[in-house]
């Protein structure tokens, strides 16, 4: 499948239809990308306000809804994996929260050079096609510990599936046996095999479902000025 089949592209200030964007996110089988998006926090926030309800967090800019994904250290250590230069394997955001936001918007302010920091995405639809009925059942039955929550990787809601996966959270907060580690290794491989890459350009805003796909990113040079602004939000 071509990556272009999985993308719905718009240009900011041209043919932007908010109901259409919301509809695409509700269906969740494509990514929405808006090129030439203004690079200000204000424009980003007001845009998201028109399509959903954004999530506030203390660590965001001014304690509001925008988080700067950039390399950042304190005490000589990164303040999160998002704030590191490390590759981030395919995952769900906020997999350890009580309620997991269903959408994410990433606005590229400054891309990393060449192919660094390229985003990776995997649609749950494409994963399901690769799985047998038994494998699906197993992913629905087995509970994993996501810090304070026991959750299965797949859940079925109204005859459709949702995914929750974040290996960093799962492995960091629980003791796993060899078989489980192997299971995760196999899952990572499988996810990767059905994933695809998108390198965001300056001014690209990408919107996608957090519960119907996984996302990740490639490694970045430690001195890179890469800056991606992120808003997590819910569409109904």
């Amino acid at each position: 499948m071509e990556v272009s089949d999985l993308l719905i592209s718009y240009k900011f200030d041209q043919n932007l239809s908010y109901p259409e964007i919301v509809n695409n996110l509700q269906k969740g089988d494509t990514l929405v990308i808006i090129e030439d998006f203004p690079l200000s926090d204000n424009d980003f926030q007001s845009f998201i306000n028109r399509i959903g309800v954004s999530i506030k967090e203390n660590r965001n800019n001014n304690g509001e809804s925008i988080f700067d994904v950039k390399i950042f250290k304190q005490n000589n250590f990164f303040t999160s994996i998002a704030n590191s230069n490390l590759a981030f394997p395919l995952h769900t955001d906020c997999a350890d929260l009580d309620s997991i936001p269903n959408c994410i918007g990433l606005l590229c302010i400054e891309p990393a050079s060449e192919s660094q920091g390229t985003n990776n995405f995997m649609f749950l639809n494409n994963l399901i096609k690769q799985l047998s009925k038994n494998e699906i059942k197993e992913l629905q039955n087995k509970k994993w510990k996501f810090r304070n929550h026991w959750r299965s990787i797949l859940t079925s809601v109204n005859k459709s599936y949702k995914i929750c996966y974040d290996r960093v959270t799962m492995e960091s907060f629980s003791k796993m046996n060899k078989t489980e580690i192997e299971e995760l290794n196999n899952l990572d491989k499988l996810f990767k095999s059905v994933s695809f890459k998108i390198k965001l350009k300056k001014g690209d805003l990408i919107l996608f479902r957090n519960d119907l796909m996984l996302h990740g990113r490639d490694e970045i040079d430690i001195n890179s000025n890469r800056l991606i602004k992120r808003i997590r939000f819910n569409v109904n």
Partner: peptide, 13 residues
């Protein structure tokens, strides 16, 4: 944090 053989120290916020 540890995952897939990686160990990373993450600072307090």
């Amino acid at each position: 944090l540890n995952w897939d053989g990686n160990i990373e120290k993450i600072s307090c916020r």
